[in-house]
Design a protein around this nucleic acid. Structure first.
Lengths: 191, 191, 191, 191
DNA sequence: CATGAATGAGGGTTCATTCAT
DNA sequence: AATGAATGAACCCTCATTCAT
């Protein structure tokens, strides 16, 4: 049998699936329980409320994302390869956790304390990207006078927009997406 | 006295405010009515349902956005100035209509028919941006071998991300944001 | 232009149609107005409320029915022919005014005063039938020891049941119904 | 404690009471719940909707009625005694379930599928009566040339009309009603 | 007189949460 | 600890009625 912590994770994963598919409001606790293979009441043994479950799911998901991003960044690759890997993983991740994309907006449904925390979580991602850029500059892979923060916006925004268009608008599967060319445009600019 | 159409617009504006502030599910029709200064039942004289009101609000909002964007693009400016204007207006617009940002994600809460329509609406915005890029290439302001579609992702994504960070994370007012430098990074690339 | 009274009748007829088709609760005042070719508010110039309109429509309908029944009964026919005529007319009438059939039950939705009135209206119909039976006995067309009241139940009940079965269950048109044989069974009994 | 099925029956009985007293539209689910001694939401644990509850109540009621009628018919009594028993039980039953009387008319408020089903249910009652008549003919209690179907209309219609008049118009209690004489008129005819 | 836009009370239904088993 | 039956607050929507034009 599963330990208490394992079952908690199980519920978090189920929550991620249901919240992703339906959004916070339309997601039913009962469905999450069903996916987790437990009774509805049991969810409340592990989490105080639906909202609390949502928060912890986001937290859990972002931790996973940050850790993976960190690994990618820490691999000793050229900046271009790193960005491609980042885009690839992000796409895979976004695809499984649309709620992660929603969170930035849905957060206004949550408490201020939560909102603050969410901002911080997201900042942590930005920081990782900025680290990567910094390193790229130091290694001479990126230009010296680059504004690191602005560059991080271009990277994150472009990757997100690209993913959204390819998956939701063009109906592609993630494997079918060509990230290389996208990264080239980011790196080379439009001029 | 307000004409029928004026009152319809009034309700749409109220809807934009309430939906923006609360998201689709948490927004109460009664509150929208209250903001519009009318009775709850009156909303249903103008719109078939809450969902229909939401759709038309999005539609109304996107139309406004598209028209303004079109104007900006049609002004005979250098591509850099155009992008700055685009970013400025978008920021102002996003600030008033966070729901527009949510829409991309909230759409998965709505019917498939609605999803399809929303995609098409958004594609229209992409097309305008692509037109602008095309023109920039022809005028020699942008490089000849630029992939227009990918460039549009970089532009839209970067502008959005920049706005989100500055307003929600850094707590700046729109007037305080420097769009020029941002646009430079987009145009010049990171390398 | 129509006189006030003519328009009142027009509304009553429209009400009969809509109430018949939908029952009291599902009938919308607006639809009645539409059928009557007037505005919704105008209905309230002629009737105090939906309920009042319903009452007066029933009243109007029953008056018509009673008058027609009276005529049939006053024709100098043999009892058998009279009953066939009664059944024919009732069928035609019921067909147009299902609500008349409903009234006996729907009346419990109305005020007690209305209920009382309705009972009296219906009693008047019973009385006419009883008159006819009386006459039949005097003319020797019916047996001397017949309980007039019970006989009226058999007549009214059988005709109603026959109609219901033929129209609603068997799907026949009224013209296709053979009332003669039915009347024979009523007159001759089962033994 | 009540089993799930027992509670379902409890709700059905409560529904019968409330629907009978108020008709379908005016009956409030909350009142049904109150009578059943449960919360409003609980009703929806057992039935999908108010309409579904109504259908199942009718179904439940008709089943009970049919079963009892069947028993009466299967007792080895003379046709006269059988009819008296039938009238007695029907009166008792109608008294408790006015909705059963309403159903024939209320059905036009419901879906076509429901209407069809209701017709079939009622046909089953007709069939039982016809069986009884058939048997009566075979046993020589009823005349050989009797039209079985028409006879069933006379029986059902007369009994219903008699009941309605005695209870609603004359204000009698069921025990006070004399069914014997009524049956005699049905059997002997009016001539 | 006639209208129909505006209203808001009312009720069906959903679902997060509780709690007895 | 685990369950799921029970609950009732909350909210969308309908439509009889009103009243300004």
């Amino acid at each position: 049998m599963a330990t208490k912590e394992e079952k908690r994770i199980e519920i978090l994963k189920a929550a991620a699936r249901i919240f992703s598919a339906n959004g916070f409001e339309k997601a039913k606790v009962e469905d999450i329980a069903k996916v987790a293979g437990i009774g509805k009441g049991t969810v409340y043994e592990y989490f105080d409320s639906k909202k609390s479950l949502f928060k912890q799911m986001i937290s859990f998901g972002l931790d996973q994302y940050r850790l993976s991003i960190k690994e990618i960044i820490e691999e000793n690759l050229h900046i271009r390869a790193r960005l491609v890997e980042l885009a690839k993983y992000s796409a895979k991740y976004f695809n499984q956790h649309i709620d992660m994309i929603q969170m930035a907006t849905q957060c206004n449904l949550l408490s201020n304390e939560m909102k603050q925390w969410l901002i911080e979580e997201r900042l942590a991602v930005f920081e990782l990207i900025e680290q990567m850029i910094d390193e790229g500059i130091k290694k001479g892979e990126l230009r010296q006078n680059l504004n690191v923060e602005l560059a991080s916006f271009v990277i994150i925004g472009s990757i997100g927009e690209h993913f959204t268009k390819r998956v939701f608008f063009d109906g592609l599967n993630i494997e079918e997406i060509d990230f290389g060319e996208m990264v080239d445009v980011i790196l080379d600019g439009l001029v």
